[in-house]
């Protein structure tokens, strides 16, 4: 009861924190899509490059977020952003690489070779083939990667409150330091709900981006 009262009293702050949180995750994942999708496509050209890149991206994801934030303080301090918004965005970009690169790579390599051959044999250039056939067919799997990245990084961003990035993690960190269960629970609840809402929203985007001709098919 106490908690519900707290939430109602602090709705506008929760709203502001939520927007901060979303802005970090969506900006970072947006940038990550712009880098990871082209990388995922490019590495389909060479198995060994693909293995190396995927290995590096997996290593990246094993670094605990708190350690990553710590590492970035000396790295980003020279440009005046050792803590705060920028390192949070950078961390999310890095963590998003693996799910998006891996899914893009898998989806493109899984395109039926017969379709690739038909496209080539009918006179499509490599670029036309990508744009008209391979990417549209890969969209559901790429989007699944984006959803994984977003959900995972909503959690990562909560930790970023410790480096002053703001967001819903602020409630959690204060809840811990002030031994205030109301803030702690509010933060945890809001982060979970945001993750669920973002995933549902992206599922809708995925549907809109997927051709009706391949909808309803199983995606890994």
């Amino acid at each position: 009861m106490e908690i519900i009262g707290f939430i109602i009293d602090n709705l506008h702050i929760i709203g502001a924190r939520t927007i901060e949180h979303i802005s970090i995750v969506f900006l970072a994942v947006g940038i990550a899509i712009a880098t990871a999708v082209p990388i995922g496509i490019a590495i389909t050209q060479s198995k060994s490059t693909a293995d190396t890149i995927l290995y590096l991206a997996s290593m990246m994801i094993t670094v605990p977020s708190i350690a990553l934030f710590g590492l970035m303080i000396p790295l980003l301090s020279p440009i005046g952003h050792g803590i705060g918004y920028v390192p949070a965005v950078v961390a999310v970009i890095l963590y998003s690489q693996l799910p998006i690169i891996r899914n893009t790579y898998t989806a493109i390599t899984n395109v039926d070779p017969a379709l690739r051959e038909a496209a080539k044999g009918m006179g499509m250039s490599t670029w036309q083939r990508l744009r008209q056939v391979e990417i549209p067919l890969a969209i559901p799997v790429i989007m699944a990667g984006v959803r994984t990245a977003v959900v995972m990084n909503i959690g990562v961003t909560a930790i970023a409150a410790y480096i002053g990035a703001g967001g819903l993690g602020t409630f959690i960190s204060r809840g811990i330091s002030q031994s205030d269960p109301r803030q702690l629970v509010t933060g945890a609840l809001a982060v979970s709900l945001l993750a669920i809402a973002a995933d549902l929203f992206l599922a809708l985007v995925q549907r809109l981006l997927t051709s009706r001709g391949i909808q309803g098919e199983v995606t890994p």
């Binding site: 017969a114 379709l115 038909a118 496209a119 056939v133 051709s211 391949i214």
Partner: peptide, 9 residues
């Protein structure tokens, strides 16, 4: 082609 290869999208 033998596999027909219509683009499903």
């Amino acid at each position: 082609i033998q596999q027909i290869g219509l683009f499903p999208n």
